[in-house]
Amino acid sequence: MANHAFADLVGDEQVFFTEYFNKKPMLRKNAVPGDPRDILSLRKLDQLVNLEVIRPPYIKVNLKGDGVPEQGYSRNVVVQGQTITDTVDPEKIYELYRAGATVTWCSLNHIVPEMRDFTRVISEKMAVRTDTVAFLTPSAKKGYPPHHDPVDLFIVQLEGSKHWKLWNPPTPRLGNNAQYTLEGLGEPEIEVSLQPGDVLYLPYGTPHAATAEGSGSLHLSIMMRPRMWRDLLRETLDDLVGADVFNEYPHIGEARAADVEAVFKEKIHELVARLESVDTSAELDRLADLGRHLPGSSKGNTFQAIADMDDMGPASRLRRGKAPLAFGEDDNGRTQLTVNGHKIAVPTPIAETLAALGPDASITASHVFPGVDELRSAKAAQGLTRLGVFELVPAG
């Protein structure tokens, strides 16, 4: 799958955040570069539905506005002598689709690595939990009645076309799911037939309705779960009340001591003081970083990294890793390091090499331990790399 940028979805980011974000829906025609099927295609969904491991609720089916019970499209399979219940039955899914049902693929970023990469682009920018849901709707069929969702949405049309009607979010904004009638909604703010590569943005609570056209429709909904001020403040409070000063166990029942209320007031004053001393810029950065690492967008390459470490030689190029590192004093030629909270002692020449290595600098493994032969230096570098003190610089 091609790499995509946040700007592919929103265009000019300043215009998006100023005029549309959290305010009103937005339409961008021909927004996605290249072939949208590279993101997700009918062929890929055929491959997925025929796996023996997909289970509800990763797939949901809706027929004539009603959800089909999971028993209507699932079966049991036996894996290594163990029965796995409620796996998706491909033929039953196909039968329901032929009958006019919409097939919804939930949280594809849990299953498809390419989807995970795609959602991470949005998570990095928006600092929220992000999930991808694919909607496969037969020709001329309505998937769901007019409704709104409690999440922000990017809609990316991938195959076929779909006719959309969107209305501005109501005032006051409603946080939960809700259904509407077309008569009650009036004239839409946007009415459009989405073609492959077109993108819609819907702020949370935006009423919308959609009907597939032509040969059926496949679109991707990228769901961004809003973090309200109350959510952010709760995370800040949770961090502050983790201090030792609040780690006491009072008795607050009917027989509580006379001074408990006074102590409670002291704790409240302490918490207020800590809130008032918060560095708001740094705290928002911390909260944003937390939002970028919520479930659904994690990544890693530990298996490959360990294999690369096993092949490390004197010529391997290294840079400082991400593990927190603190230096102790020299004690008879050995210096204590604290790595991720763990204490280790290394020859002082290695500690001096680490201390002199800037954040953007790199070094060959043969130079990590000055004064010894290349193989011994490389062996020491390998051990430190396993601890996260170093990381390998990618070739090229």
Rank of each mutant, 00 (worst) to 15 (best):
K29N: 02
E19A: 15
D86L: 00
P370H: 10
S377Q: 04
R319A: 07
L325W: 05
D46T: 01
E374V: 12
D35M: 15
E283Y: 03
A365H: 01
L166C: 14
A127Y: 06
D289G: 03
V393K: 06
G300E: 02
V61G: 03
K267R: 11
K142T: 14
W167F: 10
R286W: 12
L387W: 00
P250Q: 02
L294R: 08
E159L: 11
A305D: 14
E235D: 15
E13P: 04
A262V: 03
E189K: 12
F6C: 09
Q195E: 05
Y58F: 11
Y204G: 05
E270I: 10
G100V: 05
D149P: 02
V68C: 13
A31M: 04
F327A: 10
H219R: 00
P113Y: 06
L318N: 06
T353F: 03
D152V: 00
S277M: 13
V372W: 03
G214L: 10
V68E: 14
P347A: 09
T236I: 10
G214A: 09
T211F: 04
A323Q: 12
D259I: 04
A243E: 09
K379H: 12
G358M: 12
D231S: 09
G143A: 06
L354E: 08
V15G: 02
R234V: 01
Y204C: 01
T102N: 14
V61N: 07
G388A: 09
N332V: 07
L294M: 15
P138Q: 10
A257Y: 14
P57Q: 13
V10Y: 00
F16K: 02
D238W: 07
A273L: 02
V79W: 08
V339I: 13
L384S: 04
V199W: 07
V245Q: 15
S41R: 11
